[in-house]
Amino acid sequence: MHISEGVLSAPVLVTGAALAVTGISVGLKKMDYDKIPEAAVLSATFFVASLIHVPMGPSSVHLVLNGINGLLLGWLCFPSILVALALQAILFQFGGITVLGVNTVIMALPGLMGYYVFGNLIKGKNRLLSLAAAFACGFFSVLLSGIFVAGALLFTGKSFISAAKLILLAHLPVMIIEGIITLFCVAFLKKVKPEILGGVYEKGS
């Protein structure tokens, strides 16, 4: 899912960086005292998740965990994912520094969207519905990330349809796995610490 250095054209890189800066500044504004440890823990989780690989065809794909990141952090997932991606770029050479902005948007924006679309359902009383929404959140976050990658490649002159097809096919197992992981996380949190699912707005900040 990480786009390598030197693949994208300059306008795509600049747009990505600008969007990422916007997301990060909103995220940092919303970051309050209680949320910092949570953001750090989820950042660490995201950082490690990319090392868990699912072999798939000629390549192999890895977990992303942007769904649960967005769901629990809301806007804060931008800084959280940026930190993890920056460290991955420096330590593992995944992606790269110039594509950091684009990669951050690709992974964080779907998480944020999942937070807005599924957040309320997940917080809801109906247990079955909230678990289904958790699965959907994990599933669609990866799906959307794949579409964003294809979109970024499109503006660089690659064919959208073939790139999208390839990415989506390769990530289908990841989508399902992440859906299940998100589902279990939500089920666990509902039992242990339901207030955390409220995201940053719970405390009215």
Binding site: M1, H2, G6, S59, A163, A170
Partner: peptide
């Protein structure tokens, strides 16, 4: 390589 991976 596929999916935005590149090496030289």
């Amino acid at each position: 390589a596929a999916m935005g991976h590149k090496a030289e």
